[in-house]
Write a protein that binds this DNA or RNA. Structure first.
Lengths: 233, 233
DNA sequence: ATTATGAATAAGTGCGTACATAATTTTGTC
DNA sequence: GACAAAATTATGTACGCACTTATTCATAAT
C-alpha cells in the first residue's frame, strides 16, 4: 500500500493505525523499523518518526530504543479533559457569573493537604471557601488552600473583587498539576449553601498545583448535582 | 539567555514556558516568530517549531498561520485520563478479578443511546449488564449497548469466559471516543448488586466509541463509592 | 555459571532547506 | 469608498543527513 504523492505525517499515522485496527499488527506484535516503513510508504524516516511518536502519545504503541515499536498489549483510553477557569466556563454557558466569599483565614494546613503536595508542612497557608454562582444559582463550592510561602502576594488580594481561582490562574501559572475526580454525598452544611437536598451525590474535583517543586494551591471543588465533565477526542 | 550547546526541543519548550510563567510573555501577548526565537536561542527553526507545537497541544499558546503565536487568554488545565481495561486495572491494584454477567439480550436501543452516537437508530443492538469484581467485592457495574450492525461477530461471543469490555477492546479498537463523567445516587436495584446503601453517591463514566463513523458501543460504568479517577501531567 | 565488555541496532534529536498553506495586508480597479 | 486580486508573512510539513542514546545481544573474562 503505497501512498501516492502529497502526504502528511497524519496520513502515515492513519495507515499504521488502520493496520492495528484491522489486525495486520496485533497487540504485542513488533512493527517494522521506522526505516522500513519509510521505504514502503515512500517517505522520509522523520515523517514516520513523527507519526509513530504521535501513536505512542495516544497510548496505542510503545516505543523503545533498540527494542523497536510494539502494539500495546493493554490498550488504554486516553481522554483529555479541558478544565477552564470557572468564571469562563459559566459565562460560556450563557449564565451571569457571581462569586461569594464564605470565609478567608490564615492558618495551618492539615497534614492531609500537605501530603498532597508531598511536603511535611506548607505553613503558613490561606484557606478560602467560596461559592461560584451561575445565573444566581450555586454552581461550584470551592475549598482552597494556598501556600503563602510560595505566593506571599496573595495576602494582599481583595477577594471581594476577584475570586482566588481567577487571581491565581491569571497571576500564578503552575508548571505541574494533579487532578482527582470522585463522587461524594454532600455534607449537611454544604447542602444548604449549594441549595440541594442533604446527602445529594456531588461530583468533586480536587486539583493540586505546583510551580517547579513549590506548592501553590490545593482546591476541592464540589459541583452542582447535574454537572458533567466532558471530553472529546 | 542563550542555550549553551546540546539542547533538545524540550529545553526550548521550558525556556518559553518559563517566560510565560514569569510574565515575560503575558496572556494575549504575541510571541516572537519561530525564526527569531531560533536565532536568539541559537537553534534551528524546526526545533522551535517542535517546542511550540507541544506548547500548543498543552493549551498554553495558540498558533495561527500568519497570525503568529499568542499566549492563551484563558488558560485551561488539560488533564489526561488513562482509562485501562477494567480487568487490567483491578489486577494492577493487586486484587483477583472476577466477572458476573447479569443479563444479555438483543433488543432495540432507546433513543437516548442512539442520540449519543448521533444516529437515528442503531438497531439491532445487544444490551449487556455485568458486574466486575475486585477480590470478591463489586468494583464496577456496567450497562452496555453494542451496535450489532457494526460488530456482528459479537453475537457469537461467550460472555461467561470474557467480559464484553475486554472482548471489545481487544477485538474492536475504536477510532474515536467520547467520555462523560458525573456523580449519581445509586438506584435501589443497583445498590443491592453493588453492596452499598441505597442512594450512595457513585462516580459514573459514560463512554461512547466509534470506528470511523460507525457506532461500536456505549457503556455506563458505575464505580465503587471510594473510586477515584486520577490524572497526572 | 556469572559477570564485564563491547558491538550492533533502532529510536531520539538537531539542522538547514524547500515548499505548502492559511491568513493578513497591500494594491488595484471600479 | 467598496470590493476583489495579489503580494506578503508566519506557521505547517517534508526531506535527508548526521549524530546521540538507550537497549539488546553476543562474546570474552572471571
Amino acid at each position: 500500500m503505497t501512498l501516492a504523492d502529497r502526504q502528511s505525517w497524519r496520513d502515515v499515522r492513519e495507515v499504521i493505525r488502520n493496520r492495528i485496527l484491522n489486525s495486520t499488527y496485533k497487540p504485542g506484535d513488533k512493527l517494522p523499523r521506522d526505516h522500513d516503513i519509510a521505504l514502503e510508504l515512500e517517505c522520509a524516516r522523520s515523517t514516520v518518526q513523527r507519526a509513530m511518536s504521535s501513536l505512542a502519545e495516544d497510548g496505542i504503541v510503545e516505543r523503545k530504543r533498540k527494542g523497536g515499536t510494539i502494539v500495546r498489549l493493554d490498550p488504554v483510553t486516553r481522554a483529555t479533559l479541558n478544565i477552564p477557569i470557572t468564571k469562563v466556563e459559566i459565562e460560556a454557558r450563557g449564565f451571569k457569573y457571581g462569586h461569594h466569599l464564605i470565609s478567608s483565614e490564615v492558618t495551618s494546613a492539615p497534614p492531609s493537604v500537605a501530603a498532597r503536595f508531598g511536603v511535611a508542612s506548607m505553613d503558613p497557608a490561606a484557606r478560602i471557601r467560596a461559592l461560584h454562582m451561575a445565573g444566581g444559582r450555586p454552581y461550584v463550592l470551592e475549598d482552597r488552600w494556598i501556600c503563602l510561602k510560595t505566593v506571599p502576594e496573595f495576602r494582599d488580594v481583595d477577594l471581594t473583587y476577584i475570586s482566588a481561582n481567577e487571581w491565581l490562574v491569571r497571576n500564578r501559572p503552575y508548571s505541574r498539576s494533579d487532578v482527582q475526580i470522585y463522587a461524594l454525598p454532600i455534607q449537611p452544611d454544604e447542602a444548604e449553601l449549594m441549595e440541594v437536598p442533604e446527602g445529594s451525590a456531588m461530583l468533586v474535583l480536587e486539583r493540586t498545583t505546583w510551580i517547579g517543586r513549590e506548592p501553590i494551591t490545593h482546591v476541592k471543588a464540589t459541583h452542582t448535582v447535574d454537572y458533567r465533565l466532558m471530553t472529546s477526542g
